[in-house]
Amino acid sequence: MTVLAVAGLVKSFGGVQAVNGVSFSVAAGEMLALIGPNGAGKSTCFNMLNGQIKPDSGRIALNGRNIAGLSPNRVWRLGVGRTFQIAATFASMTVRENVQVALLAHRRHIWRFWRPAAAWFVPEADALLTQVGMRDQAERAASVLAYGDLKRLELAIALANAPRLLLMDEPTAGMAPAERTALMQLTRSLASRQGLAVLFTEHDMDVVFGVATRIVVLNRGELIAEGDGPTIRADPRVRAVYLGSGVTSGGHRC
């Protein structure tokens, strides 16, 4: 079942075409990797899907409904979760409170002024933390977490609205190789279990070729290739503009 269908997405900044007629789709349970050189338009694409940037033209359909141009909070309400390149969490709160705030926002309980926030949705928050393996750190301050743990907390927050689509911008940036695989394996198992569609950008080819079901490649705002790992690896254009010879990214073995 197609969760996200993007068609003819266009965006330019001051005359420079950042994204030029990009189309692709993501199905439930699928992990789609969006790769390409630095400055190819990946972030712009992402920010349009998430609602932070309005596309000039094109259609972004979430479960058949066009969400192009909606604000980030509307997009979130329609079931799109997001993690950021630099993990964005709430530093003045504990790990559990971070998830509680997301749950409160999801259930539209923000405009309440009396009952302490700490008393709301504790079992639900703990269940989400258990999913990402952070239950035992629930009481700690988010600001003192190790970076890998912070990324997992961010994942729990992004899952609080039971999203249909999860957007992950360079999810493993700043992590050690072993942690990278662990985080993405976790995401993959969540995706297949919950029928979640995942779209992620990534520069670590071990992660991309290790977990992605399908890969799309952007270059200068245009989609130049689409397919599974072996197809992408074998594509001469992708090699030329992005993959290189493979000596520093694990080779081109399949």
Binding site: P72, N73, F84, T89, A102, I110, R112
Partner: peptide
């Protein structure tokens, strides 16, 4: 004090701590 420890106060603090994250979980 009561209000700041209630959901509203937490949401307010969330918007201060990380505006991007707050927007991404639907807070205005």
């Amino acid at each position: 004090r009561r209000i700041l420890y209630a959901p509203f106060g937490y949401a307010l603090r969330a918007a201060r701590d990380s505006e991007t994250r707050a927007a991404a979980i639907g807070l205005n």
